[in-house]
Computed example of a mutant assay.
Amino acid sequence: MKKMIIAAGTGFLGNVLIDHFKNDYKIVVLTRGKAEIKNDIRYVNWDAKTMTGWEAELEGADVLINLAGKSVDCRYNEKNKSEIMASRVDSTVILDKAVSQCANPPKHWLNSSTATIYRNSVDKQMDEETGEIGHDFSMNVAKVWEKAFFRNETPGTLKTALRTSIVLGRNGGAFVPLKKLAQFGLGGRQGSGRQFVSWIHEKDFARAVEFIIERRMEGPINVVSPTPVRNAAFMKTLRKAVGMPVGIPIGTSLLKLGAMLIGTETELVLKSRNVIPKRLTDAGFTFGYGDLGTALGNLLNKY
């Protein structure tokens, strides 16, 4: 059976990938938690910074997927900003070192990246070829992260950066709190509501990863649905999906206060991520849930 290594694979996206690939791959998860075998998945301890024996697992692997990185759902103070950057770069650098030392390295390495690498855009759709990369904390993290990933050549290993935006899933990610907001009648537009939301259904995320592996696609790839929607339309569709006719809008000032109270940043909802998956669609990938209403209906078990 083929072998897949998922670094930092115990979170939401890791579980999405495990569920999708578990029947076709022998899966090993690198985790800061304890080493164990659970549901036929082997968990191996690592600290994402140093080699402590876990690197032997990479030998002969077919696929390596790195999902490591501190959540950006926090206040951007100096401590958190340092940890956000270091958690992404350190894990990438140590994996690069481990891959380079393998006698039989992984055939394909897919590293997390982010669609937030593109500038705030309410006008232009950002693809991999013509997308405009700007300069602020989040974009700089993405640039340094990808630079660390692509810095060294790995002749025996394909490299793909997964520029992912909001992954909508039943059991994790942004969908759970957004659904609660809508159910409580607070699902109105956020800020001006004009900012675009780039999103993807969890099953399409996993299928896109599989497609990239099968097609041996390299370089940066936008892993998002083909239909970014404005925040106001996103929230309206969500209200309809949960059956709540009322949605109180939340202005920018109130968002800033709320973000401070719950320890997060308004950028997560106010930045306009107007990103499209040109490379995926050009290669022939078809989305099962390209329509937001259909995607939300599925996640709410309507069909």
Rank of each mutant, 00 (worst) to 15 (best):
V275E: 11
P277Q: 12
F285L: 01
E265F: 06
P249S: 13
I248W: 15
I262R: 04
G258V: 00
T264S: 13
I276S: 03
T264C: 08
I248E: 08
A295E: 08
A295M: 04
T281D: 01
T294A: 06
L261S: 00
A295I: 05
T294D: 08
R279G: 06
D291N: 04
G247T: 00
F287D: 05
I276G: 01
F287I: 09
P249M: 05
S272Q: 05
T294M: 05
R279L: 11
G293E: 11
G284D: 15
G290M: 12
L280W: 05
K256V: 09
A259M: 07
A283N: 01
G247Q: 01
T281H: 00
S253D: 08
P249E: 08
A259E: 04
K271Q: 13
V246I: 15
E267Q: 03
F287E: 04
M260W: 11
I250E: 05
G288H: 10
L270N: 07
P249G: 00
L280M: 04
T294L: 07
G290H: 11
L268M: 13
S253G: 03
M260L: 11
V246K: 12
L255N: 06
R273N: 07
K278E: 09
G251N: 15
T286D: 03
S253R: 12
R279C: 04
T266R: 11
G258Y: 10
L280N: 07
G251D: 14
G243F: 13
E267W: 09
K278A: 10
L270Y: 15
A295G: 02
R273L: 06
K271E: 13
D291P: 05
Y289K: 06
T281Y: 02
M260Q: 09
D282E: 09
L268R: 08
K271S: 08
T281I: 10
R279A: 14
G258P: 01
T294Q: 10
E267D: 12
D282H: 02
